[in-house]
Design a protein around this nucleic acid. Structure first.
Lengths: 245, 245
DNA sequence: CGGAACATTGAGAGGGATCAATGGACGTGG
DNA sequence: CCACGTCCATTGATCCCTCTCAATGTTCCG
């Protein structure tokens, strides 16, 4: 059976509480269903879109896992995020009518295609949808600020701790374990995201394991002491006056 | 005379080509004028808004200079951007109905207040305005990705070079010199933005000066060799094959 | 079974942080 | 107008976290 004929409407989608229709009333959600006529499958390693591609649509991840990355002229690239089910890709393309980053599937994935002109049209009719689109873009801006904080002011241990906590929290919101996960990305991709080299990522994983904070076996990670991870993220390490007041 | 009574409409504002009304047709711009009934002055050192403040409006910088920063529980903070005339502040507040970062004036400033509910209402009527709001948010997302690239994959010299080029380019777009500027922020604020310590910022400035790339005297900076700065930003420094072709 | 991709670990080097002192710029008040 | 304090910038010396280079181990798949 053709994938595109599998009708999974927003109204009946199990991601509706996380995804674009979040908080919308039934009539608005039905309108969204009309907008999403098209689904797209992306194989592991393939690009949903690449930097420079013309922008036409946003994408809602239905299943699978993505990374987004930007590349400089001289070939360096920086992973700017990892996206899982219910998250929206492609917001970077609006301003220039072409994508500023690339989105690569880290495992076989499926996305709902949201033609942006139609989405704008519908947002003009439904103020709840309009506001929701604004919230999604604002959320991305706030997320980016968090990454800047991480990259600009944290040391390697803190970065990796924050990364693991963020990841497991998002997975937990999707019904997965609160303490276990299988990473979909390589050490190098984690390192690129966190602004450190893959060896440093690996070493930091090992140190966490030695300290009994996590259990790591390649891509598998289990958080044994979430408080220790939280402490790493939330406490400054300058001066030694680690007061918790 | 009261500041608020000084009517400077978008239609006659000298920033209209850079600011929110950019590219809008005259009738839409007039509608914007009705929306912006209120101006606000912010003294040097004062906050336009602080993290946690309830979100009501976006702000368009009319004059002056701002920094935005986020703060962690343990008191570390990270400057996430510097904003000058024509740039929009406050997009971070939409998602949670409260601001996620603080905006501090680095010199006496004046902003146009854009009540967000009214802006949403107006964008439902005018699709050009609607799209423009989306472009502004997308632009911020793309800018943030650039900062991540800078923080995640550049060394100190490259960061400062990119910073200076970005700043002078934005100033030039506002009619200032292409090669000279007076920095409105301290070394510490630059350092926070670029993820380095103030001493490193200062040392890097000095090195650039020794190399004849720039001339620095405290806050005054003159770019003597823009190509050298560009080369720093665009060429990888791994392997030692620093060809300048 | 062999190869490719990925992860781990070690040794050594270096870039930026840290600690510390000095020097300018600017504003305020005598 | 100068003295003084404050804030900011510069510069030096030293340390250490992370990078780099390199070798080995593991997993997966043709």
């Amino acid at each position: 059976m053709d994938l595109h004929s599998i009708k999974v409407a927003c109204t009946s989608c199990n991601l509706r509480e996380l995804c674009l229709p979040m908080g919308l009333a039934p009539p608005e959600m039905e309108q969204l269903d009309h907008l999403i006529t098209n689904r797209r499958r992306v194989r592991r390693g393939a690009a949903l879109f690449a930097a420079g591609d013309p922008f036409t649509s946003l994408y809602a991840v239905r299943s699978g896992f993505f990374k987004t990355s930007v590349t400089t002229a001289d070939g360096r690239d920086q992973v700017t995020g990892f996206q899982m089910a219910g998250e929206i890709l492609g917001l970077d393309g609006i301003v220039q009518d072409k994508h500023a980053c690339s989105a690569i599937a880290l495992e076989d994935a499926e996305v709902c295609v949201l033609p942006f002109d139609k989405l704008e049209q519908l947002s003009r009719e439904f103020s709840a949808l309009q506001h929701h689109v604004h919230r999604i873009m604002s959320r991305e801006i706030v997320r980016d600020q968090g990454v800047m904080l991480l990259l600009g002011s944290m040391r390697a241990e803190e970065r990796l701790a924050a990364f693991l906590l963020n990841l497991v929290q998002r997975l937990h919101a999707r019904g997965f374990s609160k303490s276990e996960m299988v990473l979909r990305m390589t050490r190098e991709e984690i390192g690129s995201y966190l602004g450190m080299k893959l060896e440093t990522v690996s070493r930091t994983f090992s140190r966490f394991q030695e300290d009994g904070i996590i259990e790591v076996k390649q891509r598998y990670v289990r958080i044994l002491d979430p408080n220790a991870l939280n402490a790493l993220v939330n406490h400054a390490h300058t001066g030694g006056t680690d007061r918790v007041d």
